[in-house]
């Protein structure tokens, strides 16, 4: 049986597709976007995270790390010594069956609202066998959506597409070099998958995280709109950058140091899309 690594399961996610949804976050991502808001989703390996809310700063967790490894770090065993129970492992192994059983418990509510499950990440397409097996097991059980960067081989992308009902597809940057610089990979395969998706007739929504000075230029947004029009896409969702983005870095022991100035409000330019006949929704 296939196993997957899940770093979080969120009930009642309201912006991850139609209706009330449960979002399953699969761990590991081939991209490294400078503005990534779930740093705990980047690595494929399980890691320990500490919620900052309510922390007594007693350092019991760190002391445990020193005791066991000689390093001032949070280790697996730290979870059991936190008096506030604030430490958890991000990255639990799930079998397809375990995950499906869990999701089915909420199926009635999800279905009644016209919702279902959304697989997100990290990059869900990076665990293709597990994802596909889950999607097949949920066929006819609930509506299945995929939230993706689009970064995967077209063969895998097409296979996943066949077994799902809806896509939320990010178009971050049109310039391949800039994409490489800010996201760690070129966008060639992303654009190719986008064309496949648009041509398939599958229901999907295009999303753009609008990052100040990075991709909110007229040049990039015009190129995006033109590309969408070329693929006959008529709707886009803009997700303006929020300053809270960096809030999860501390709890994973990472530093958030974007090169762009996050105090500048992102420029949304809805008119650019409207000029291309694309309806804009801002989240």
């Amino acid at each position: 049986m296939e196993k997957g690594i899940v770093f979080s399961i969120e009930e009642f996610s309201v912006y991850d597709g139609p209706g009330i949804r449960t979002t399953v976050f699969l761990k590991g991502c081939p991209l490294h976007c400078m503005w990534c808001h779930s740093p705990e989703g980047q690595s494929f390996a399980p890691e320990m995270i500490r919620s900052p809310n309510g922390c007594l700063h007693c350092d019991a967790c760190i002391k445990k790390g020193i005791e066991l490894t000689g390093q001032p770090q949070i280790v697996k065993e730290s979870a059991a010594v936190c008096p506030r129970n604030l430490i958890r492992q991000a990255g639990d192994e799930y079998s397809v069956e375990e995950l499906v059983v869990k999701l089915k418990k909420n199926a009635a509510i999800l279905n009644a609202s016209g919702g279902g499950v959304t697989f997100s990440g990290g990059e869900p397409l990076r665990q293709p066998r597990f994802l596909n097996a889950c999607l097949k097991a949920l066929d006819g059980v609930m509506h299945r959506a995929i939230q993706t960067s689009g970064f995967s081989s077209p063969r895998i992308f097409s296979e996943i597409m066949k077994n799902s009902d809806y896509f939320l597809f990010d178009l971050k940057l049109m310039d391949p070099n800039k994409h490489l610089y800010y996201c760690g990979q070129s966008n060639a395969v992303i654009l190719e998958n986008y064309r496949i998706l648009a041509a398939s007739g599958k229901e999907f929504i295009t999303r753009i995280p609008v990052i100040p000075t990075v991709n909110d230029t007229e040049e990039n947004l015009t190129a995006t709109a033109a590309f969408m029009k070329e693929n006959q896409v008529k709707k886009v969702e803009l997700l303006p950058y929020h300053k809270l983005t960096g809030s999860k870095y501390a709890m994973t022991g990472r530093k958030y140091a974007p090169e762009f100035d996050e105090t500048i409000p992102p420029q949304l330019h809805p008119e650019i899309f409207e000029n291309y006949g694309i309806e804009v929704n801002v989240l």
Partner: peptide, 9 residues
């Protein structure tokens, strides 16, 4: 909490 769907159930 797992979330509001579990809570209401």
């Amino acid at each position: 909490l797992e979330g509001p769907l579990s809570v209401i159930q």
